[in-house]
Design a protein around this nucleic acid. Sequence first.
DNA 1: TAAAACACTACTTATTAGATAGAGTTTTGG
DNA 2: CCAAAACTCTATCTAATAAGTAGTGTTTTA
Lengths: 158, 158
Amino acid sequence: MISQKARYALRALIALSRANNSMMIAQIAEEQQIPRKFLEQILLDLKHNGIVASRRGRLGGYGLLMPPDQITFGRVLRIVDGPVAPLPCLSRIAYRRCTDCKTEANCEIRRVFARVAEAVRDVLDRTTIADAIGNGWPEIAGAEKNAEKEKKSVPLQA
Amino acid sequence: MISQKARYALRALIALSRANNSMMIAQIAEEQQIPRKFLEQILLDLKHNGIVASRRGRLGGYGLLMPPDQITFGRVLRIVDGPVAPLPCLSRIAYRRCTDCKTEANCEIRRVFARVAEAVRDVLDRTTIADAIGNGWPEIAGAEKNAEKEKKSVPLQA
DNA sequence: TAAAACACTACTTATTAGATAGAGTTTTGG
DNA sequence: CCAAAACTCTATCTAATAAGTAGTGTTTTA
């Protein structure tokens, strides 16, 4: 099971992608029904990991640091939940040998779960936020809408 | 990540399959380096779920209730760890609606993880203990060895 | 009939999930 | 220039879960 936190993170990123503009924490929190202070931490974490950028002060807010079709589910999950692998000894970002199994190469359990891990990565590392919402970025059809919003948009800071 | 408990369960079942005979808890615990009292609980749980059978008293022990090629990883994991699905709303054994998402049918996150769930089940529900150890049961080649052991073997109780 | 083995239930302890709280730092409208 | 608005950071809290321990009860058989 993925954590609630990871789901919040994904929902926030989807919201930001749809908005096609920066949004304030409070705005995302209300729209997505996410506890505001919890969302703050999540966004901060995503910022520290180069997914989003922010701006402080009165016209502050968060925005994507890259187009939605470059943000994979796998990357977000690894930031928020840690390893995606079903066993520590199969993790790429946090490999840890299993203390008990003698020789990793012929561990029956590892062999089976290696196939699970591969299947999971096959989906998570190939599916982006853009795939999830069903379009790329920037929205080509929304050119006029974008132009209108650009007046109000302010540069964000990584 | 799957739990340590699930790994112990799988290892115990692999040991029982290899032994091709009933084993005492203490025997499995020592061989597999599993805390004995913890293993007791696990085996009891597997017994309550029809995977293994036991016999009490002096010549007691545990044995498989079905051939290893009929015990899938998925079944064991669901008994020991609960749902295999990445989201409650994708679980077959413990479905729970996500409180927050309005309409399940067009939840972007659910759509993506449905593909993950399918991929995971594809491996876990098709892979058996026999697959993991690389042979079926009973061992056709071990006919004489089996006959020898049959003298000592005692019927187990489901 | 007592020792050996499983059966059951309750407890413990450490970690994690899911928040909440609050003080600090930037930014900007007036 | 300053106060309100918004992000930043760190600490704390509570409930649940993971992983294991403990102890008493029940069954079997040498």
